[in-house]
Amino acid sequence: MSVCLVVDDSGVVRKVARRILEELGFTCEEAADGQLAYEFCSKKMPEAILLDWNMPVMSGIEFLEKLRAMPSGNDPKVVFCTTENDMNHIQRAITAGANEYIMKPFDTEIIKSKFIQIGLIDE
């Protein structure tokens, strides 16, 4: 079963995301900030990462840049999931190597459609 790492400093968001992702067939792991996510990935790369932008200790974008520089750091598909909803943030995320971008609030439909587009799940 594919592993999806949910990186968000809000426990509520992680819980909601976990429920949706498990429904889509993923095994969920959680990290509360970029640093913890980085440590997780140093041990084992997940197949997918759902990534918040603004978090204490290490932001999502900083984590993404570090991740893509790691050995096999290009393996996970990364989907940003953030309240930042302007074109500048979107562009910056994609340039840094994000595969997709979700603007909060999100629902099952949105996560499902984005995950289908980048080939993480079948239709």
Partner: peptide
Amino acid sequence: SQFEVQRGLPIQYLMKYFTQ
């Protein structure tokens, strides 16, 4: 709406063909 552009539309298309 933000909701509509997230259902089915790849982010690359949003970046290329839409203005906020």
